[in-house]
Design a protein around this nucleic acid. Structure first.
Length: 276
DNA sequence: TCCCAGGCTCTCT
DNA sequence: AGAGAGCATGGG
């Protein structure tokens, strides 16, 4: 049940919405833990969430904003229970489901997702967050103590040299190239959403710095292409460890992307004693 | 100090 | 097609 009171939105806890896991699973880099919850910016708006006994609270969110933005952002209409049950037919995935219950695949802004995962390559999550934070502070819009993610147009206008301050290293040229292609219309991110998965992936990979893994992350976290199965170092580790060379992500179809995210979270959770 | 990080591009076979 | 070096930066 969801209800609205005192200008807050309350969603009843059902074990399938964990703000901690959602924002700690590496799909999104703009939310941080605060006193008793998480806060960040998405789609140009500040959002703060925290848990009460039986409800998760969307602070200062009215009904129309909830329905217009956050319901889709948090993928609240999808039946994760049914998907989890299906994935549990695989033994390893079942363990990952157990650890990951409450993760939801966000529907993030496409440009922000593209740009963020270009930055993510050969990088670690704490540093990715810092670089994106500096990008928003230097080129985003101040919305009162927080900054929006800068548009492709703004970044394109700034150019690669202006990106030096975000210390993204060799990725600066890739960001600038992506911004130029998107701002000029050479790449139409909405058009990609109307394509089939394979076609959309090839389309995104025409951007410099976007290979198969980054493209899959963008398609999964920005487009909800749930068949996208990003293969990063962690997932390759998972495949080696639990499955072997014969692994084929089609065993999770059509929810490979969700399985991937669970496995990614699970493996990082297991090794969290040593490294984040 | 060293190894590694939600990889990709370029070059050489 | 596949292997390998190089890439900027900084977290651990």
């Amino acid at each position: 049940m969801t209800y609205f009171r005192n200008n807050n939105a309350y969603i009843e806890k059902d074990g399938l919405f964990s703000i901690e896991k959602i924002f700690d699973c590496g799909q999104c880099f703009r939310f941080e833990r605060d006193d008793n919850g998480f806060s960040g910016v998405a789609f140009g708006r500040k959002l703060r969430l925290y848990d009460e006994d039986d409800y998760t609270v969307f602070e200062n969110v009215a009904e129309d904003e909830f329905n217009k933005i956050w319901k889709d952002y948090f993928d609240l209409s999808r039946d994760y229970n049914g998907i989890n049950d299906m994935l549990c037919r695989d033994g390893t995935a079942a363990k990952a489901v157990e650890a990951s219950r409450g993760i939801r695949i966000l529907r993030q802004d496409r440009w922000e997702t593209l740009c963020s995962f270009i930055i993510s390559q050969n990088n670690n999550i704490p540093r990715i967050k810092k670089i994106i934070g500096r990008l928003c502070e230097s080129l985003g819009t101040d919305i009162g103590g927080a900054y929006t993610f800068p548009s492709a147009e703004v970044i394109a206008k700034a150019g690669a040299e202006k990106l030096a301050v975000i210390k993204s290293g060799f990725r600066a040229n890739y960001i600038a190239d992506a911004a130029l292609k998107v701002a000029s219309g050479q790449i139409d991110l909405d058009a990609a959403g109307k394509m089939e998965y394979e076609e959309a992936k090839k389309y995104l990979m025409t951007i410099r710095g976007v290979g198969p893994k980054v493209a899959d992350c963008v398609l999964l976290f920005g487009y909800s292409f749930l068949s996208a199965f990003p293969k990063d170092v962690w997932i390759k580790r998972v495949i080696d460890k639990y499955y072997g060379d014969s692994f084929d992500e089609k065993i999770f179809a059509p929810y490979g992307g969700i399985a991937q995210q669970y496995l990614f979270y699970y493996e990082r959770w297991i090794s969290s004693g040593k490294r984040q």
